[in-house]
C-alpha cells in the first residue's frame, strides 16, 4: 500500500501490465521521448523500448486503426489520445471497426483507448470535453471512467486484460488532485460494476468521474443539514450496472443524476430513463439531472464556471428533489 495520485495509479497500471505481458504496447503522440502531455508514461521508453512505446505522428485515425489491427493479431495496444477531444478524429475506426468487429466475425480485438477528458482548468473548446456519450451509443464498445486512484488502476488493468475495445476516460482535473492508498500489487476492478461511494437513505446520486467528488462534497453538506445521500459511482457506462443504482433508488425513492458532460443526449438521460421505467413505483420525486449547459466548453473562467455543474448546482438540485 502506498498513497498515490490518480495519475500515478494510471501509470502504475500501465507499467505493471507491460511488465507482465509483452503483448501490451503503447501508441500515442509524444508519449515516448516526452513521456506524454500529462507525463503518464515518463520512463516507459527507457524501460520498454521503442517497439513497445511508440511516438506516433499526429494522425489519430491512423494510429487508432493500426492499434486495432495489431490487436486482432494478438498484441494488446493501449492508445493514448493527447486529449479526449481528439478522439473525434478517430471516430470512424472506433465506431465502425473496433465496435463491430466481434459481432461481425467473432474475432477478438483487445485494445484500449485512453482519453484524458474533462474541464475545469480553462482548456477551452478543444481541451475540455467529455465525449463519453458519443461512444455509449455504440454497441460493441466498453466505456469506463474512474473517479479514484484505486478504481483508476483496477479499471485500467481490467481494460487491458479485456478482449474487447475499451474506452477509458480519465479526468484531467483529478490527475494530481486526488490521492489515496492503493495496493502495490495488481488487482482488477471489474468492468460493468458500479460502486457505492457513500451510503445514505434519503437520496440516490448516480454519477461518475470528477462529479463523484463534487457529489460527495454535497452529500456531506446535506448530511450536516440532516439528509443522507447515497452516492453511486457508475465507473462503467458500458456495460452498465443497472442493478446497483436501481437497488439504491428502491431504498431512497429519490434520484439525482450528475455528470460533467452536456445535458442533452448525455449519458444521464439513459440512467434517468432506466430509473423512470424500472423504479417508477417507488419514486417520490421526478428523476432530475445536473449536467453542463448545452454549449461548447468556453475558455474564460467566468464562462466555464457558468457552464459546468458546480457543487452549488448539485446542492440546489438535490434540495429540490429532497423537498419535492
Amino acid at each position: 500500500m502506498a498513497v498515490i495520485t490518480y495519475l500515478e495509479a494510471i501509470s502504475q497500471a500501465l507499467r505493471d501490465e507491460m511488465r507482465r505481458d509483452e503483448n501490451v504496447i503503447l501508441l500515442g503522440e509524444d508519449i515516448a521521448v516526452f513521456g506524454g502531455a500529462f507525463k503518464v508514461t515518463v520512463g516507459f521508453l527507457d524501460e520498454f523500448g521503442e517497439d513497445r512505446v511508440i511516438d506516433t505522428p499526429i494522425s489519430e485515425s491512423g494510429f487508432t486503426g493500426a492499434a486495432c489491427g495489431a490487436a486482432v493479431e494478438g498484441l494488446r495496444p493501449v492508445v493514448e489520445f493527447q486529449f479526449a477531444d481528439f478522439i473525434a478524429c478517430a471516430f470512424d475506426q472506433i465506431v465502425n471497426y473496433a465496435a463491430k468487429n466481434y459481432y461481425r466475425w467473432g474475432i477478438p480485438m483487445p485494445v484500449v483507448f485512453r482519453g484524458p477528458a474533462g474541464g475545469g482548468f480553462r482548456g477551452g473548446p478543444y481541451h475540455s470535453q467529455n465525449p463519453e456519450a458519443w461512444f455509449t451509443h455504440v454497441p460493441g464498445l466498453k466505456v469506463v471512467q474512474p473517479s479514484t486512484p484505486y478504481d483508476a488502476k483496477g479499471l485500467l488493468i481490467a481494460a487491458i486484460r479485456d478482449n474487447n475495445p475499451v474506452i477509458y476516460f480519465e479526468h484531467k482535473h483529478l490527475y494530481r488532485r486526488i490521492k489515496e492508498d492503493v495496493p502495490d500489487e495488481d488487482y482488477v476492478v471489474p468492468i460493468g460494476v458500479a460502486d457505492v461511494k457513500r451510503e445514505g437513505t434519503d437520496l440516490t446520486v448516480v454519477t461518475y468521474g470528477a462529479m463523484v467528488h463534487k457529489s460527495l462534497a454535497v452529500a456531506e453538506r446535506l448530511s450536516r443539514e440532516g439528509a443522507e445521500c447515497e452516492v453511486v459511482d457508475l465507473r462503467s457506462l458500458s456495460p452498465l450496472d443497472r442493478d446497483t443504482f436501481l437497488a439504491s433508488v428502491r431504498k431512497t425513492s429519490r434520484a439525482l443524476v450528475v455528470h460533467e458532460a452536456q445535458l442533452t443526449g448525455g449519458f444521464g438521460g439513459e440512467v434517468a430513463a432506466i430509473i423512470a421505467q424500472e423504479a417508477f413505483d417507488v419514486l417520490d420525486a421526478p428523476v432530475t439531472r445536473v449536467a453542463a449547459l448545452d454549449i461548447p466548453s468556453p475558455f474564460a473562467a467566468s464562462l466555464e464556471d457558468a457552464m459546468l455543474p458546480t457543487e452549488e448546482k448539485i446542492y440546489t438540485a438535490a434540495k429540490n428533489v429532497l423537498e419535492y
Partner: peptide
C-alpha cells in the same frame, strides 16, 4: 480505413 489497420497488422509482424 483498412490502410491504418493494415499498417497495424504489419506492425505486429
Amino acid at each position: 480505413s483498412w490502410i491504418p489497420s493494415g499498417a497495424g497488422f504489419a506492425l505486429a509482424f
